[in-house]
Each structure stands twice: as structure tokens, then as C-alpha cells.
Amino acid sequence: MSKKKPLSHGQLRRMRTNQKKKLQSHDAGETTDLQDSMLGPEQQGTIISRFGQHADVETDSGHLARCNIRRNIKSLVTGDNVIVRLALTSESGASRIEGIVEAVHPRHSQLSRPDLYDGVKIIAANIDQILIVTSVKPAFTTQIIDRYLVAAEDTGIEPVIILNKVDLITPEEAPEIDAALERYKSIGYRVYRVSSKTGEGVEQLHALMNDKVNVFVGQSGVGKSSMINAMMPDAELITGDISENSGLGQHTTTTAKLLHISTGGDLIDSPGVREFALWHLPADRVGWCFVEFRDYLGTCKFRDCKHLNDPGCSITEAFNAGEITEDRYNNYHRIIASLDEQRHARHFRAGPDE
């Protein structure tokens, strides 16, 4: 039997559009439009989660309500601070909609995820710090950490590196991992060691996240959901085991949701990302996102310096002088080399009808 031909991007897009229309039609059949006369005064609230044309909103008084979204609101994501009006009475037939999101306050930060098909998508807002989770399984790699650090530096949100599953580190692995973490500390990043299994470092994480809006990012399988469960046993998140055959983790989280931490602070549990694509960033922006490069940027002999074999390159001179570590220098060039590949892949997958 011959294999089915893969769907083109245009076909996938039309299929998604039809599915979206069906969902909207289904939602419309279950709910009743709320008129202004049915709504109470304006209240302040926070988006706990977004579901298509609806959002779960928590008001400042602590009431959680599923609300419709005004059509003039172009962007609404988990973490947004909003103005909402709730229904004066819940006796509106079988409707479960309790109010309407009227407006969105300006964001002080936002986390975006580049997507090969849909461009740059905002996935969460008003975040205070990004917790970059890595672990020894599926594999510890500074290349992935540096990709996340670039993405975090580009947003202006402070990143913190979390090494999970420290209970699995072998004596043979320890020196290399310790040295890598010390390199990050030396350029100003905070590093925490945690085991969601043994509880090691969990108290320190509670203190780190107190009074802040936090988000975990990291490859699938590094234990983000398990870590959240260790910190918040009532979160009831689904966790996935690492495949013993492939060593790869399973994607376990589907919708971004804001969770309250009992010891203080909030956590936005966002959809897992296997690899944070950076194709939307120009090369000079990537260089700026390597914090130890900043003192040397703009001082190279040539304006279009690639920071590799170019004569008079300040970055290369700093590397040769030991001011920039080999690991970070090489990871920078790996990221730069991958940019054109990712852009080409996006153009190829988008198809001629884009």
C-alpha cells in the first residue's frame, strides 16, 4: 500500500480554519450573548487561561469566571491584566459564560514563540522571570540552554537556569556539568539545582518564585510538569515518563494556565517547547543576547563582521584572550549557522500560497 501524500501547508491551514469555525459554531450554540443591561460594573482581573473565543478570568476579589472576549480585542493571553464585567445573574439558561472581557491593560512583558507556520505567537504576558529548566536526562546540553537564554534576553525578561533531576547525575558526569554551570554564574546568571523526586532545592525555588509571575521553559522531558507537581501538589498536572527506548520525553502540557503558588507568587504553565526557534532574530540581535559579547559589539574593524575569521574582530580577540569561553563562542556560531536553515525551512513549509 502506497503512503499517503503529506498535506501541503495550504491544506493544513484550510483544515485548521474549518475546525476553528466548527468550534466557534459549537460554542455559539451553547452560550447566550450577554447584553450590557445584564452586566455589572467594571472589575479588574487576570487571565488564568485562554480557550478560543473564551477566557477564564480571576477577578481581584478571587472569583473565577469564564468570559466571552470583545471582538475588538486583538490579542489576549494567559497573564494579561484585564477589565471585565460579570453578569448580574447566572440564571441565563444553560449558558456557562459569566461575563465579558472588555479591555486589556498594557503589558510590561510578553513571551513569544516563533512558529514555522504561524509566525511569532505571543503565549503569555506580564512575566517577571523565565525559569530555563534543563536536566541530565534526556541530555544535558549547553546548546539548548544558550538558545533559551537568547530568547529570554530578547524579551527583556530575567532568565534563571534550573538544573532538574540532580539525583541522576553520575560521578563521571558531575565535573563537566559543574564546570558548565559555573561558567553561567561567572557571566551573571543565577543557577539552581533541583530534584523533584527527592525534594532537593524545592524550598529555594519557592523563595525564588515568591511575589513574582514565573514561567518554566525547556525541552520536553526535562521534568517541568513534575517539578510543578513537587512544588504544588494540588496542581494535578499530567506528567510523562521518558521513553526508555529513545530517551525522549513526551509532550504533556497543552494550554497555558496561570497557577497560584501557596507559598507566594504565580506560575504560568505554558505549552512545552522542544526547541525555541530563533529564525525571527537578526544575527546582530543574537550577538547582543550573549551578555558577555556586549562590551565588544560595535568595535570590530568591519561593520558586517561575522565574528569568526574576520580580521580585526573584537569578539574573536576576546575569545582568544579568554574573556569569552569556548563553549559560549561555539554555541553562538551554531545558532547563527542555524538561522538561515530555519528561515529556509519556514519558507519551504509555508508554500507558494503564503
Rank of each mutant, 00 (worst) to 15 (best):
Q44D: 14
A152M: 03
E102L: 08
L278S: 09
P352C: 01
A180D: 12
L181F: 13
D310K: 05
G188K: 10
I47S: 07
G156V: 03
L88Y: 01
D234C: 01
D353W: 09
D327Y: 04
I122Q: 11
S243I: 07
Q219E: 12
I123D: 03
L259T: 04
L39D: 06
E42Y: 04
H54W: 08
K257Y: 06
V217M: 13
M38T: 04
T46L: 13
V194N: 06
N210P: 00
C313I: 04
V191E: 10
F319L: 07
K257R: 15
Q143K: 10
D56W: 12
Y192L: 15
I242E: 05
D27Q: 07
R346Q: 15
S2D: 04
P114D: 03
R183Q: 15
L339K: 10
V215G: 03
I157C: 04
A152G: 05
V286D: 07
R328V: 08
A345Y: 05
C305N: 07
P233S: 11
S109Q: 03
A152S: 14
G156A: 04
G223R: 04
I130H: 07
V291G: 02
T252G: 08
T239K: 12
Q129P: 08
N126E: 06
V150K: 03
A151L: 04
L64S: 13
S243V: 08
S109F: 03
I47G: 08
I144H: 03
A179L: 13
T299Q: 12
S92H: 13
A151Y: 01
S270Y: 01
G93Y: 00
I335Y: 09
Y117M: 06
P233W: 10
A28C: 00
K5F: 00
I144T: 14
T325A: 14
A174S: 13
T31Y: 08
V101F: 05
V191N: 12
F216D: 02
P233A: 11
Q219N: 14
Q44G: 14
T253N: 11
A230D: 08
D284K: 08
T32S: 10
A350R: 15
L297S: 06
I83Q: 12
V215Q: 04
G264Q: 06
P175L: 12
D80I: 10
A139V: 11
R343W: 07
I324P: 06
G199F: 12
S37Y: 07
K20F: 05
E91L: 09
H26M: 06
N18P: 00
V286R: 06
S49Y: 03
I132E: 00
I97F: 00
H344C: 02
E341P: 00
N320P: 00
Q204E: 15
R107N: 05
I83A: 08
D60K: 12
G93H: 04
A337I: 02
M232V: 15
I228D: 05
P282F: 08
D284N: 14
A256F: 07
E58M: 15
M1S: 11
P6C: 03
K22M: 11
G249R: 12
H347P: 00
V136I: 15
V273A: 12
T32G: 01
A350T: 10
V120F: 00
P352E: 13
